[in-house]
Design a protein around this nucleic acid. Structure first.
Lengths: 125, 125
DNA sequence: CAAGTTTTGACAACCATTTTCGTTTTCGCC
DNA sequence: GGCGAAAACGAAAATGGTTGTCAAAACTTG
């Protein structure tokens, strides 16, 4: 893992929520780094390929990334105000999606599940 | 609902899977329509605003649309080969996401759930 | 230190989507 | 049927996130 890639990974770990490539680029530049936008994209691509970060798409089509605690399959409960994310696991959903798939004769079933809401902190405000 | 919008809705209904705006534009032009790309986008926007079609994002960030049988909240089981989609309902997931949200003090909880796989038809090939 | 390899980053290219804006169509009304 | 306002249309340009290009910089190895 090159120095640049580590820097991107560190910047991502410093946040508790999902960040876009542009966000991270801004963060790193603000910290005095001379990194280029292209490199940030390349680093995120590599990190997601190796499974070190999770990726998902916002409703606007922007890709957002997160450094997760576990490398196991899991989902997220994301605050739609501050974008903080809690990692959640769900034997229930895993079982349910597998059943649904089987019922309709589908093979190689996978799924995407994301839960959105307003976190306790932001609900108060 | 204007004529153009009906045409887009009809083109969408003619397909059993999710189609992108560009796909629909190509379909309509192939059928001899003189519709413009802008209008297709506008029609899809209006149709999704009024809840007549469902929208989701591919992994590549492209928006894809589908004319659904029911207007109720539901999810999809999508074939990753031919993109045919089956509408599915899941009291189980609805309950599960609500619980997860409550457990972490989140309010106004919503969710996105999509299931992917290879349909029986495409599995054979 | 030199030659070769990898990484980097400024800039241009891409492509789905949105905006702009002048033109055309639709619709209510006489 | 004819008129004028308002809505719909569509071609072309603008936008914005993301990817490709390529020469310069950094690191490796002998």
């Amino acid at each position: 893992m090159s120095t640049r890639r580590e820097a991107v990974h560190r910047a991502l770990t410093a946040s508790s929520g999902f960040r876009s490539a542009q966000d991270l680029y801004a963060d790193l530049r603000a910290d005095g780094s001379k990194i280029g936008l292209t490199t940030v994209y390349r680093a995120l691509q590599a990190l997601s390929d190796s499974g070190d970060v999770d990726v998902l798409r916002t409703d606007e089509g922007e890709a957002v990334y997160r450094a997760c605690d576990t490398e196991n399959h899991h989902h997220h409960l994301v605050c739609r105000v501050c974008s903080t994310a809690v990692e959640i696991e769900g034997p229930t959903v895993e079982r349910w999606t597998a059943e649904i798939g089987a019922q309709h004769g589908f093979t190689g079933v996978t799924h995407t599940v994301e839960v959105f809401g307003t976190c306790a902190e932001c609900s108060k405000a």
